[in-house]
């Protein structure tokens, strides 16, 4: 959880790492909650019959944007609220019910203006990357 105190860029250095467990044993309920919150009612994410018989997947799977949203928590918990200027990911592998996800952020650059760049990657319980990307933020100096 982010606190009131704002992280300062001077408190970070290139190579700093932060890891955070985002979700343990991802539930179908959370996937459905995300469908409702995001407005993405693609049946591939909640309708088992559609996902397996029509689409040919082993089961329903999480919205990529749910994993991106979960991963965003590493950034806001670490860097603070309202400080991001960019956040982007590639969806590398699908996330299924029962998965446990851990995000890792690494500081890759710090600018004199307080800008910081973070490389971010989230892996499942087998250590396989599910999303990978980067973020930028501007922090107080």
């Amino acid at each position: 959880m982010s606190g009131h105190a704002k992280l300062q860029a001077s408190a970070l250095k290139v190579g700093d790492v932060r890891e955070q467990v985002l979700v343990e044993n991802l539930s179908r309920t959370q996937i459905v909650m995300y469908a409702g919150a995001s407005g993405d009612f693609n049946p591939i994410h909640h309708d088992e019959t559609f996902a397996t018989q029509a689409a040919g997947y082993p089961s329903v799977f999480a919205h990529g944007m749910l994993t991106m949203g979960l991963t965003g928590r590493l950034l806001t918990d670490w860097l603070g609220d309202g400080v991001l200027t960019e956040y982007g990911v590639r969806f590398v592998k699908q996330v299924f019910p029962g998965d446990t996800l851990t995000a890792k952020g690494t500081v890759t650059a710090i600018g004199a203006d307080g800008s910081v760049e973070i490389e971010v990657a989230t892996v499942n319980q087998n250590g396989e990357p599910v999303v990978a990307g980067r973020a930028k933020a501007v922090l107080p100096r």
Binding site: M1, S2, H4, K6, L22, V23, Q30, M33, Y34, G36, A37, S38, M65, L66, M68, G69, L70, G72, R73, L75, T76, D77, G80, D81, G82, L84, Y87
Partner: peptide, 28 residues
């Protein structure tokens, strides 16, 4: 839905006292 318990997303009194000055939305 993204399992984020940060009160900046729902607690107005808390959010007002932060540098954001009020409730903000999560990044995505």
């Amino acid at each position: 839905a993204i399992g984020d318990t940060n009160p900046i997303y729902w607690d107005e009194a808390y959010a007002k006292a932060t540098p954001c000055g009020g409730i903000v939305a999560p990044p995505t």
